[in-house]
Design a protein around this nucleic acid. Structure first.
Lengths: 299, 299
DNA sequence: GAGTTCTTATAACGTCAAGGAATGGACCTG
DNA sequence: CAGGTCCATTCCTTGACGTTATAAGAACTC
């Protein structure tokens, strides 16, 4: 069953005239005649009764008509959907975000949704480390994470973040000394292994090893505990926004306290939707439209 | 969108191996490679990631898979249905019958239904004249009628029928004299114009012009009126079976009282279902299976 | 790490069928 | 009967498809 022959059949059925049908198909009449003859040979029966008034459908032709139309329409739909999918106009995209990107991800996703409304976007909240693992496994498309991402992945730095002291009042005196005198409210390691590691390294660099007053499972709670006077905490400066007004957040002005935040993706798994998303986040970063092009489209 | 390419795509998707897929398609591997490349070029994206372990579907391939399967299945269905329709294995058949063929038609149709269960048969009850008109207009496929059918139609004689006298008791004496002494219960002309004409001609040949006692609209009623003593009637001898036991039916032994009954069809409109039906009615009358064949079926 | 063995991709070539131009033939119309 | 309108046929060119042979790449083996 060749769709080309079915299209020929439908054209003739519509026009009831070989010449007109051939013109519509950009063919000459003899070519069309041969196509219809081929189809009739394959089916084993005549599709049209030819006569002075042109071509009229036989019973067989009539019985074929609706289904043939249906099939041709479906094939066109299939093709157009596939092309749009290949262009990233439709499809699915999963985006990861976490502590490091509370402000970055939502905006990017909203903008992407506006530009590509037919792509369904999934937002997943998880630690930078988990994002990176899943991106490497091609299980997640892109992520907003604490950099660097690691080998094999591509990244783009969007901005910097740094540690800040969250306490009822700003710490007085030298920071290292202050740290040596306080135990900290901490975020559970699993919820932010990158952050935890960073805090450890920074404290070590300050020659301090503060203990743990209490562990919380999200940043909101950490800040609430700080506000309740349980103890101070080291938090990302970007968390200022979600801090209660009774908590003083003091960014730490030290190179060792800062890190890069950016978007990460897997160059081995970069379908058009991903390229399009990256172009929203970092305009001009990736050529858009046909990143996985395979040559010229003919038909 | 070429179904051949979709089949290639599905084969590779199933086997995840070009060689195996090519074998299934009775192709060599390079040919299959080219088909997939063609499809990928048309869609504008890769369908498979090729590697040591064969070919794995990309997102694009995955998104195409179910719809492609559906389309291919539908095309196969369409083709097989069309072929069976062309062979007369499925389809529609309208059969006409009337007074002349009360016993012939039902048996033929029943037998045909047994042999070709997927053809839906419509039985239409109408006069021979109406059947012939509709057959000539290709509005009815075949009919069981009083012969001859007329120009342009083909017919086959199945048996003879003749007039019979239906009366409370068999007519005594010479028939012509008897006819001249009785008025008749008659069937409405429109219900059996052929029969009515035949009766008129026969009576005229017997030098009788019997009047009309009463007109009924079906044969059953005519016989009931006879049984009720309203008057005698001339009816087809084949009507014996439906006559009440109190009515004596005496076939008339005269060449002028008999006629042929047979099956009629339109040679200009003789799709396979019709040929198949005729083969049931008159085994061997028409070559079965591919009466409207158009050459050899290749694919 | 060189060789082997899996893959898929490419090159070269022959074949066959699709399409175009010209022509034929059947049928109606004036 | 000439002219017009259809579809069918013929002949020819071109290109697409498939085959054979070979390359190229990646993952094992020893």
């Amino acid at each position: 069953m060749d769709l080309r022959l079915l299209r020929a059949f439908l054209a003739v059925a519509d026009h009831r005239h070989y010449g007109a049908a051939a013109h519509q198909l950009s063919l000459t009449q003899p070519a069309l005649t041969k196509q219809i003859q081929t189809l009739e040979r394959q089916l084993g029966g005549h599709l049209f009764t030819r006569g002075r008034h042109g071509a009229a459908l036989t019973d067989l032709g009539q019985s074929l008509l609706t289904d043939a139309r249906d099939l041709v329409v479906r094939s066109d739909l299939l093709a157009s959907r596939a092309v749009r999918f290949a262009q990233g106009t439709v499809g699915r995209l999963s985006v990861g975000f976490g502590l490091s990107s509370i402000e970055l991800a939502p905006w990017s996703v909203a903008e992407f949704r506006r530009r590509w409304p037919d792509v369904s976007v999934t937002l997943d909240d998880m630690s930078s480390r988990a994002q990176i693992e899943r991106i490497a496994a091609a299980d997640l498309d892109v992520g907003f994470v604490r950099l660097p991402a690691g080998a094999g992945l591509q990244q783009y730095t969007l901005r910097q973040d740094r540690l800040a002291v969250a306490a009822p009042s700003a710490p007085a005196g030298e920071l290292g000394a202050w740290l040596r005198e306080h135990d900290l409210v901490r975020l559970h390691r699993d919820k932010g292994p990158g952050l935890a590691g960073h805090i450890d390294r920074f404290c070590a660099a300050q020659a301090a090893t503060p203990g743990t007053v209490q562990v919380a499972h999200d940043l909101q709670t950490v800040l609430a505990l700080v506000a309740a006077g349980v103890g101070p905490a080291l938090v990302p400066a970007s968390a200022t926004r979600i801090a209660p007004s009774t908590v003083s957040v003091t960014p730490i002005d030290d190179p060792g306290a800062s890190w890069d935040v950016g978007v990460v993706w897997n160059p081995e798994h970069c379908p058009p939707v991903v390229s399009n998303f990256l172009n929203v986040v970092v305009p001009g970063s990736v050529r858009a439209g046909q990143p996985s092009a395979v040559g010229n489209v003919r038909s």
